[in-house]
Design a protein around this nucleic acid. Structure first.
Lengths: 350, 350
DNA sequence: AATTAGCACTCTATAAGATGCAGTGCTAAC
DNA sequence: GTTAGCACTGCATCTTATAGAGTGCTAATT
């Protein structure tokens, strides 16, 4: 995909420009580089190289007499070939351990806390999706009678997470019938994943349909989507840290400010971008830079995400910020927290 | 509390100033009023009256040669004595009916949708708290075995709402003991409210403590807070509509922008203010204007809230915006939606 | 006695210059 | 291939000028 060949000197200049721009947020000039790093080249030579890099589409100009600014392609090259990996420092690690205690919270709250931590450490927006139940393996179904006409369906999945759904039934159901249905459902569905159950539910239980259980089964058929459908991710996705991200100089004007608000309130854009590149080997960190997202609204941002796992199910967490972000550091943070979450949640008897 | 006596003429001028300021967001001058409303007074006379109103603390000046601006006291007088009640128009009513269908959602989602609607109609921030379980009357407790060492406690309250908590037990519990405990708990606790249960739990079940149920009972004692404690309101409170509120001219600069973000991300300020005036007859609309909140961070905002009820429990919903808001209209919206929610939720067999 | 016209004054917002600066691109010299 | 030199460009910032909206006070008017 990225078959650009650069000389060592070009790489060095490109790296300096991007590094410098990430730190200062100002277009980087030739003189600046020549002086700051004693690179053994005059500003004029650096200008020539910069011009070449611009021809290659790696750098750009805001206007004639401004310094150079990385393009999306420039960032991409930097991330793929130039950047050296970073590590979290002691202070950051301490902050995480001090604040993240997965076993003390219920899942939803854990997500909020994790997101807040990730955001604080990176000084960007953080987001985290609720784990997807699509691949969840059903351990068992239990039916609890709430009142004469309402039952609660309790689904336990292999990882130990529990999902409950309340069903309305327009008829009195005797206790023994309820237990019969419970047993039937368990026999037919236990061990399967939700996706599979959705596809083959009617088929699997159709013989139970012509028995005394019919009225209850009907309710289950009707509510199947509600019970086994995946959760609506963007309702459960947490995005936090607006107060961090708006301090960056790119959000000085009203327009960009508004764009942050939109990003946070309509989670669809972010969730969609996070979901999109699912075909990319899902264990790795995914990095999406500006226009690569193919979403106009996201063209000023970058997104770094990674999967985390809770037994049989998984979600994603990530960081969103202006393209001018410290990729190395943020990747380290995302990876660290995703892995921490995965390990801790595995140890936890959910 | 507000024993200011004004002449009709003063009232009229004050009303005009506030009305005008609410619409235009610019300090209102004497000439402006004299021309716009043919009030039969020259600018000079109006200036005299304005000066009087300023002495009374109802109006203020941003600087010497600017027009007048309402003070908190001015708004308060307006809201209490000057404003005439407004009604929602057909378009707004239609919008609400088209979007709010309480019986199709689970509670948490319903809150989100309600908040979004309220925000759209008023063009301000909307917020809504999860109903407080403090006064909830316990209907019954059910214990569901999730695995050998985990049980789910299902609490059904009178209104039909259900709360579930998962407990970890460090010992194998036989089925019959579980059922015995369930029965015991129901006998002792059903019909009481959560607050009462919290206070008297150990007392009420202490005789069950020296029986074969001891190990299970111990877990209940230890987890009592988790089970019967009130939900942490600010975790469940929904605030939405930032994209509406930031369009108002008062949020032109960075500082005010940041203040909105803080308000949304740290819900504590809002939740605290909403909770504070609970002693005021809780059925009525509550209006808090700027400094009346006694919170520095809230001094530029007003808050209009009302209670809504789901059977035995209740929450609050409200609108937050700059003090320069259309009080009449927003009160109408808050009242209407709170009542709609209450009625609809009553009809709903939860 | 209340109202109004007139006027000097104040503060702000906006536009228009003026100036400096950072940086480029090109050419010619090294 | 590299660098010095130079003309040029666009932006940011500061200053200054100007217009406008509004006040407060005083004196005239009703």
């Amino acid at each position: 995909m990225n078959n650009i060949e650069l000389t060592d000197r070009e790489k060095s200049i490109l790296r300096h420009v991007i590094r410098q721009f990430i730190v200062t947020a100002n277009p980087v000039g030739s003189r600046n580089i020549s002086k700051r790093y004693n690179i053994g080249l005059s500003p004029a030579s650096i200008r020539n190289i910069m011009a070449d890099l611009e021809d290659l589409g790696l750098l750009g100009h805001p206007h004639t007499s401004a310094g150079r600014v990385p393009t999306d392609r420039g960032y991409r090259f930097y991330v793929d070939s130039l950047m050296e990996p970073a590590k979290l420092n002691k202070k950051e690690l301490d902050y995480i351990t001090a604040n993240l205690e997965p076993d003390t919270y219920e899942t939803e709250n854990l997500l909020k806390i994790t997101s807040a931590i990730l955001s604080t450490i990176t000084n960007q927006l953080a987001c985290i999706t609720y784990p997807k139940f699509d691949n969840a393996l059903l351990n068992k179904i239990q039916l609890v009678r709430l009142s004469s006409q309402r039952i609660m369906v309790v689904l336990t999945i292999q990882s130990g997470l529990v999902k409950t759904i309340t069903l309305e039934i327009n008829a009195e159901i005797e206790d023994d019938k309820l237990m019969g249905v419970e047993q039937l459902l368990n026999e037919r569905l236990a061990g399967l994943n939700f996706q599979e159950i959705r596809k083959t539910f009617s088929e699997r239980i159709k013989d139970g349909f012509n028995t005394e259980y019919k009225p209850v089964m009907r309710v289950f058929i009707d509510s199947m989507d509600k019970i086994f459908d995946d959760i609506k991710i963007n309702e459960k996705t947490v995005i936090s840290g607006a107060k961090n991200i708006i301090k960056h100089p790119e959000f000085g004007d009203h327009e960009h400010f508004q764009s942050v608000i939109e990003l946070i309130e309509d989670k669809d854009v972010i969730v969609h971008i996070m979901e999109k590149n699912k075909d990319i080997s899902s264990k790795d960190v995914s990095i999406i830079i500006g226009g690569e997202s193919e979403d106009e609204k996201f063209s000023d941002y970058s997104l770094i995400t990674k999967e985390y796992n809770i037994g049989d199910i998984n979600g994603k967490l990530g960081v969103i910020g202006p393209k001018r972000m410290e990729y190395g550091k943020i990747i380290a943070a995302v990876v660290y927290i995703a892995e921490l979450l995965t390990i801790e949640l595995k140890n936890q008897k959910l």
